[in-house]
Simulated assay, not measured.
Amino acid sequence: MTHGQERWIGVDIGGTKVAAAVVTSTGEVIESVRAATPAAGKAAVLDTTVALIDQLRAEHTVDGIGVGAPGIIDRAAGRVLFASDILPGWMGAEVRGELEARTSLPVTVDNDVRAMAHGENMIGVGYGRSSVLFVSIGTGIGGALSVNGELRHGAHGTAGELAHLLVPASGAIGCGCGRIDHLEAVASGPAMAAEYASRAGVSVQPLQKVVSLMHSGDPIARAVITDAGELLGRVLAGVATAFDPEVIVIGGGAAQIGPDLLSPLVAAFRLEAMRPIADTAILPAHLGTDAPLVGAALLAAATRTEVSR
Rank of each mutant, 00 (worst) to 15 (best):
residue 305 T to H: 13
residue 145 L to G: 05
residue 251 G to I: 05
residue 72 I to V: 15
residue 237 A to N: 09
residue 260 D to P: 13
residue 104 S to Q: 06
residue 9 I to E: 09
residue 15 G to I: 06
residue 247 V to P: 05
residue 79 R to H: 15
residue 268 A to I: 02
residue 249 V to Q: 09
residue 125 V to Y: 07
residue 108 T to R: 12
residue 18 V to A: 14
residue 133 L to S: 04
residue 116 M to P: 00
residue 216 S to A: 15
residue 36 A to W: 01
residue 77 A to P: 07
residue 28 E to C: 09
residue 14 G to T: 03
residue 145 L to R: 02
residue 234 R to V: 14
residue 49 T to N: 09
residue 182 H to R: 03
residue 211 V to W: 08
residue 7 R to P: 08
residue 53 I to L: 14
residue 301 A to M: 10
residue 214 M to D: 11
residue 100 E to S: 07
residue 19 A to V: 03
residue 130 S to M: 07
residue 306 E to C: 02
residue 25 S to T: 01
residue 153 H to E: 12
residue 67 V to A: 14
residue 107 V to R: 02
residue 170 S to H: 09
residue 75 R to F: 10
residue 50 V to I: 13
residue 109 V to M: 09
residue 39 A to N: 10
residue 213 L to V: 00
residue 270 R to Y: 04
residue 210 V to S: 07
residue 82 F to S: 14
residue 175 C to A: 11
residue 268 A to C: 03
residue 267 A to G: 03
residue 216 S to T: 06
residue 96 R to P: 00
residue 173 I to Q: 08
residue 188 S to F: 10
residue 42 K to Y: 12
residue 243 F to G: 02
residue 39 A to V: 10
residue 253 G to K: 04
residue 140 G to C: 09
residue 305 T to K: 08
residue 309 R to E: 15
residue 39 A to I: 00
residue 180 I to G: 11
residue 146 S to K: 00
residue 134 F to A: 04
residue 167 V to K: 00
residue 137 I to Q: 01
residue 283 L to D: 06
residue 45 V to H: 01
residue 144 A to D: 02
residue 242 A to L: 15
residue 65 I to G: 10
residue 187 A to E: 05
residue 177 C to L: 13
residue 183 L to C: 13
residue 240 A to F: 05
residue 192 M to T: 05
residue 243 F to C: 15
residue 34 R to N: 14
residue 152 R to L: 15
residue 205 Q to T: 14
residue 17 K to N: 10
residue 103 T to M: 12
residue 110 D to W: 03
residue 267 A to E: 07
residue 94 E to S: 06
residue 111 N to D: 05
residue 273 A to S: 07
residue 81 L to G: 12
residue 79 R to A: 14
residue 104 S to A: 12
residue 42 K to R: 14
residue 257 I to A: 11
residue 121 N to W: 03
residue 288 G to N: 02
residue 201 G to P: 05
residue 178 G to D: 10
residue 279 D to H: 13
residue 279 D to R: 09
residue 98 E to F: 12
residue 242 A to T: 04
residue 225 I to V: 13
residue 16 T to D: 09
residue 58 A to C: 01
residue 240 A to H: 07
residue 259 P to A: 12
residue 276 P to C: 12
residue 231 L to Y: 08
residue 139 T to A: 13
residue 80 V to R: 04
residue 71 G to P: 05
residue 145 L to F: 11
residue 106 P to G: 05
residue 275 R to N: 14
residue 48 T to D: 11
residue 303 T to F: 11
